[in-house]
Deep mutational scan, measured.
Amino acid sequence: MALNTPQITPTKKITVRAIGEELPRGDYQRCPQCDMLFSLPEINSHQSAYCPRCQAKIRDGRDWSLTRLAAMAFTMLLLMPFAWGEPLLHIWLLGIRIDANVMQGIWQMTKQGDAITGSMVFFCVIGAPLILVTSIAYLWFGNRLGMNLRPVLLMLERLKEWVMLDIYLVGIGVASIKVQDYAHIQAGVGLFSFVALVILTTVTLSHLNVEELWERFYPQRPATRRDEKLRVCLGCHFTGYPDQRGRCPRCHIPLRLRRRHSLQKCWAALLASIVLLLPANLLPISIIYLNGGRQEDTILSGIMSLASSNIAVAGIVFIASILVPFTKVIVMFTLLLSIHFKCQQGLRTRILLLRMVTWIGRWSMLDLFVISLTMSLINRDQILAFTMGPAAFYFGAAVILTILAVEWLDSRLLWDAHESGNARFDD
């Protein structure tokens, strides 16, 4: 018995066209964080690309023209004298008006014999932002004059995390709450300039795509075929072959399989920071003279006294001054041990922890910024005066060393310790 099946006739004509040209192939790229070699397709503007294995951002879609970056830099340069030299806060102490600005706080630190601690604050609040705007201006002028731009481009990517104007702005709020127990506070004209400078700096850093600047100024022929001998440069993120001198053909720094002496430098910085954190938390970090009496505060006791007036601000200072430094030390110690013992479990967790400490590390400088600003506000000789204690130097040095330890660690070593050939990683 035959089955009668109805015929289905399409209502619209289906047209099949042959592909007349070869589909576009992607360029081969190595991930600078996990060293995976993959094919990167062509990316349009405002599109980002991520590593298929570790999800690290390979290409950032946010990109401004150099002219727009230069305009932002010149605007920031105009704001800087007002943000640093004009009063941020006014207080009335014992019937006398006192003005506080950024430069005055750094000068008070240096004047009291601790120039190293003052230079830490100076670099993060004044030096690094000033280098940022002058570097962008150098790129703008240098591109037109045919100057060598490689050193500036190499420095810009590392400079971003040292620009800490946003953290200093939080420190202004913390210092205001600490001082309000002794005097009446009012915002100064410099505060508005400083807030504007923070906003412009944040926007500029978020749109400063150094890798795209490398592509514009020093374009290189990408690798179009897969080759395990391809290496990625950690300076400019170019994937290719080393030249005859073993250097990256684009930025001219040595092109090595792994960062040289990464573990040794990381261990040295980490152990030194552990040693410095002990006096930083045991010795007094601030000293207040009130009517001839002397009151010393460690980091913890200062947080407890701050909690009596504002528990939320005390929580912020606790996280930045105690929780973050010790968390960074514990995480980095764990990561280094996992590399030495070739741990194969929990790779995803370790990668996330490394990215976390990379982002939060700079916030530990908050305590030094609060001390710097408070020193310029309260300084009335023996009637009422505020000065920093010996722990300030140890704390600042420990924070900087932990930042350097994270920067010096080559994250690809975590993958080397893991089993080879993993296309995915999980716990």
Rank of each mutant, 00 (worst) to 15 (best):
R97W: 14
W214G: 11
S119C: 03
G389E: 01
M147S: 05
C233E: 00
F333R: 00
P284H: 05
E215Q: 09
M304S: 08
T67M: 13
L347M: 10
K57F: 05
V198D: 06
R380A: 01
N281I: 06
L337S: 15
P222T: 11
W214S: 15
G346Q: 14
W359C: 12
N422M: 12
A417Q: 09
F341I: 13
S262G: 06
A272R: 00
F141M: 06
A423D: 15
L353H: 13
I136F: 14
S301C: 07
R260Q: 02
W92S: 03
G246R: 05
D416I: 11
I185D: 03
I136N: 02
R380D: 00
L337A: 13
A70E: 13
I378V: 14
S321M: 02
M155K: 01
W92A: 03
I96E: 01
N379L: 03
C31W: 00
S309G: 08
C251H: 00
C124L: 08
L159F: 02
E86W: 02
I360Q: 06
I403D: 01
L66V: 15
A115D: 12
R259M: 10
R68M: 06
V198C: 14
I131A: 03
R225F: 15
V174P: 01
M72S: 05
Q104C: 08
T75K: 02
V275N: 11
S364F: 00
V179G: 13
G127K: 01
F217L: 12
R59T: 13
T402D: 10
I199H: 04
I43D: 09
D35F: 06
L156H: 06
F74C: 12
I98H: 04
V125C: 11
A417V: 12
H261K: 01
R226C: 12
M109F: 08
M155G: 04
W92H: 06
I303C: 11
L88G: 04
V313C: 11
H252R: 04
R59G: 08
L368N: 10
L165Y: 05
T117G: 03
I311V: 12
P87K: 13
T239D: 06
I311P: 13
L278R: 02
V203F: 07
L354F: 08
I8V: 13
L234F: 09
L373A: 03
L200G: 09
C34M: 00
M1T: 00
W92R: 12
I58N: 08
Y394F: 10
A391R: 00
Q47M: 09
W162E: 01
L347R: 06
V232R: 08
R256F: 03
F82Y: 15
T117D: 01
M1C: 00
N44P: 03
R225V: 08
S135W: 01
I96A: 08
R256K: 10
H46S: 10
M375V: 13
F123I: 01
A312Q: 14
G113R: 03
A269R: 00
P279W: 05
P87F: 10
L132C: 07
F122S: 14
W214P: 00
I58A: 11
L366K: 01
Y28F: 11
V179E: 01
P52A: 07
S376D: 13
R355T: 14
L230P: 07
D60C: 13
S321C: 12
L159K: 01
M80H: 08
C31Q: 00
E157I: 14
P41C: 14
D166Y: 15
Q180M: 12
Y28V: 14
L413E: 10
T402S: 02
P284R: 04
W84C: 11
R68H: 05
P390M: 12
V170I: 05
S135D: 04
K328Q: 01
L191H: 04
Y218G: 05
R158V: 15
R348D: 08
V189F: 06
P87I: 10
V189E: 07
M304K: 13
